[in-house]
Simulated assay, not measured.
Amino acid sequence: MNNPLILRERAETEAARLPALLARAEHLAGTVLLGEHGRRRAGLGDDFWQYRPAQIGDSSRMIDHRRSAMGDVQFVREREWQIAQSVMLWVDQGASMRFTSDANYPEKSDRARVLALATAILLIRGGERVGLTGTSLPPRRGSDQVLRLAEAFSIDANEDYAAPEHRAMIPHARALFISDFLGDMADVKLALTKAADRGVSGVLLQVLDPSEEAFPFRGRTIFESVGGTLSHETLKANDLRDRYLERLASRKAELEQLTRATGWRLGLHHTGDSAQSALLWLYRALDGGTT
């Protein structure tokens, strides 16, 4: 049986992380908003679809003033292309993402969560619906949705490598998956294949610690998984370097081939690099840009 005191301590720890995550994501999104002037995306068509009451998160330019003048409620004139304005997020919260090799670098999970939440803030401010893959948090607009996303991102998973969620994919929507993608590739293939079958396009962002690219280890070294389930000791870590780098290159090539086959885009981010440049790339990649 779970100890209530331990559960309470864990809950308070998670709650304390939430304001900091929101503040950093808001700040990061703000740095990108300074140089962006809205989402100029043509969409699927410009035909009128329906009027709906204005919601929190709708910009003033979306208001149809002629229709709104007929009563006390403000209405938004939705066009056909806006039906597809849903973006679904999946952020790997497995134990492997809690790795960092240096106190000067954030954990992979921390960078992934901040990037995902900042992306959601930008998209929602642009009038889009954002949610999680699966059934726990469907895409919605508004500042309340940002808070719900932050709460969801603040929960760690127990397994070493989390599998991408592919249930309840909205047809013809877009998606963003952020992970180190060092786990079972069969799970990633299944998720992207299911997404492609439903016309979902999107972006994979691989987040790695600089040491995972350089493999700087020498001599006697004990390698342990963050979750503590795997351990390997070697007296000559440098002898493993070439084989490790070959496998990492093979994994990257596999991801590239998979995204190309399913119509997705693949990005790579190191936790020692600028989060702002990664966010700007994500923002444009989800918009179909090539920058």
Rank of each mutant, 00 (worst) to 15 (best):
D58L: 02
L44D: 02
M62N: 10
A25M: 07
G35W: 09
S68W: 03
R66D: 06
P53A: 06
D46W: 00
Y51D: 05
A29Y: 04
D46Q: 05
R52Y: 05
S59N: 11
I63N: 07
H65E: 13
G43C: 01
A25H: 07
A54L: 08
L28A: 03
G43I: 02
F48C: 02
V32S: 15
T31W: 09
R66P: 00
Y51H: 03
T31Y: 09
M70W: 12
E26R: 13
Y51F: 15
H37A: 12
G35N: 12
T31V: 08
R61G: 09
P53T: 06
T31S: 14
W49A: 12
S59E: 14
A25N: 07
L28R: 05
H65R: 14
E26F: 10
A54E: 09
F48W: 01
R67P: 04
A69F: 07
G35D: 13
A25K: 04
M62T: 10
D64C: 04
G30M: 03
G43R: 00
R40C: 05
G35V: 06
G43E: 03
A69C: 04
S68Y: 04
R61A: 13
G38A: 06
H65V: 15
W49Q: 12
L33G: 12
W49R: 10
G45W: 00
D46H: 03
A42P: 02
A42M: 01
H65N: 10
D47G: 10
L33I: 11
H65F: 13
L33E: 15
F48H: 01
M62L: 13
M70N: 11
F48P: 00
D58R: 00
F48D: 00
H37Q: 10
P53Y: 07
G38L: 04
G30F: 03
A69E: 05
H27Q: 15
H37S: 08
L33S: 15
I63A: 07
I56G: 10
A54Q: 11
G38M: 06
A25Y: 06
E36T: 15
P53C: 06
H65D: 11
I56M: 11
D58Y: 02
F48V: 00
D46L: 00
R24C: 12
R39V: 12
R39C: 13
E36L: 14
H65T: 14
A42T: 07
R40M: 07
R40N: 06
P53G: 01
G30H: 01
R61F: 08
I56P: 12
S60G: 10
I63M: 07
H65L: 15
H65K: 12
S60W: 13
H27D: 14
R66K: 09
R52S: 08
V32N: 11
D47M: 05
L28I: 03
A54P: 05
D58T: 01
G43V: 01
S68N: 07
S60E: 15
G57Y: 05
D47W: 04
L33T: 13
W49D: 13
Y51R: 03
D47T: 03
L28C: 03
R52I: 05
